[in-house]
């Protein structure tokens, strides 16, 4: 309506016959109140569109870094709040929690020993069979300071960036499996694209079947667990609604090591072309309320970059 009335008024002015410079300046002065703001806005938008890409990138980074301290400060305040809420717990509760942790530590200690023995066995076999060694990662734990989960994108902001040597496309995991990958790295913060994001895509495989499938994030409904879907599943693969099959990572993408859980698939159905199967993947509900994540930084990549 506004645009239509503006153009009607503007064309009314244009139909006033021959226009000289004096008349033009008069016309500009008499422009209706509708026209002036629109012309200014269109002009400024046009100027912004004309700006070179590097300048826009510079502007974006500057505005991002400008607001980053605010998010970091809020995150520290949250941690402080958590600390004080824990302080209000009774000593009996804390002693009980300590005992539970001691039990867990003992179990992990045992697993560590098994892990070391298995690693030694792997390296022995690699040498024996002259195989290339498996990719190794450095782990960096970071706190989540912001969550943006909507129908357009799913991303979180973490409290570590270039200052901890994080790099773009590094895999991000948590105790339940895959979280996503790093999309942008800033000086003190990084943006992580979640595995549930509609733009996320990664090579995967079904547990117990080493043929690759493609995992995609998808649009998620409110008040439900996050979901994604898999494509290119071989037609002979079977699933059961009662015992869902795990979708795990493959080392093909060089982002994640093999075997990390992405989600579970219950039902597979034939794709449109009939050659493969597709299925909906149920992701963990914890993805929506993550507080801490771990970033996997490939050691080989780091060494080559340092050289």
């Amino acid at each position: 309506m506004v645009l239509v009335s503006f153009f009607k008024i503007s064309t009314g002015y244009l139909k006033t016959g021959s226009v000289n410079l004096q008349q033009t300046s008069l016309l500009l002065k008499k422009l209706p109140f509708l026209g002036k703001p629109l012309i200014i806005i269109l002009f400024v938008s046009f100027l912004l569109w004309l700006l070179p890409t590097f300048f826009k990138s510079f502007l974006r980074v500057s505005f991002f870094e400008f607001q980053a301290p605010a998010w970091t400060a809020i995150s520290y305040l949250n941690s402080f709040q958590d600390f004080w809420s824990l302080r209000s717990r009774s000593k009996t509760e804390l002693i009980k929690a300590g005992q539970d942790l001691a039990r867990l530590n003992a179990a992990y200690e045992l697993r560590n020993q098994q892990h070391e023995a298995l690693e030694a066995e792997v390296s022995r076999l690699e040498k024996l069979l002259k195989l290339p060694s498996l990719p190794e990662y450095r782990f960096e734990v970071a706190r989540v300071i912001r969550r943006d989960l909507n129908s357009w994108w799913h991303q979180i902001l973490i409290r570590k960036g270039k200052n901890y040597g994080l790099r773009e496309n590094a895999g991000v995991v948590y105790s339940g499996g895959v979280v996503g990958r790093i999309k942008e790295v800033h000086q003190f913060t990084s943006v992580v694209e979640l595995v549930s994001s509609p733009t996320f895509r990664v090579a995967a495989q079904l547990d117990g079947d080493n043929r690759p499938v493609t995992y995609y994030g998808s649009v998620n409904k409110i008040l439900t667990i996050p979901q994604g879907y898999i494509k290119d599943v071989q037609p002979d693969v079977l699933t059961n609604d009662l015992t869902p099959r795990r979708i795990i990572t493959t080392p093909f993408g060089h982002i994640f090591p093999e075997g990390l859980i992405i989600g579970h698939v219950r039902i597979l159905s034939p794709s449109n072309d009939g050659l493969f199967q597709i299925g909906q993947v149920e992701l963990s509900k914890e993805l929506l309320s993550l507080k801490e994540v771990t970033i996997l930084i490939p050691i080989i990549n780091e060494e080559s970059l340092n050289k």
Binding site: F64, W153, T199
Partner: peptide
């Protein structure tokens, strides 16, 4: 607008 747009994956501007 420039502040909000900096932290979301929409084309800048």
């Amino acid at each position: 607008a420039l502040t909000v747009n900096a932290s979301i994956p929409l084309p800048y501007g």
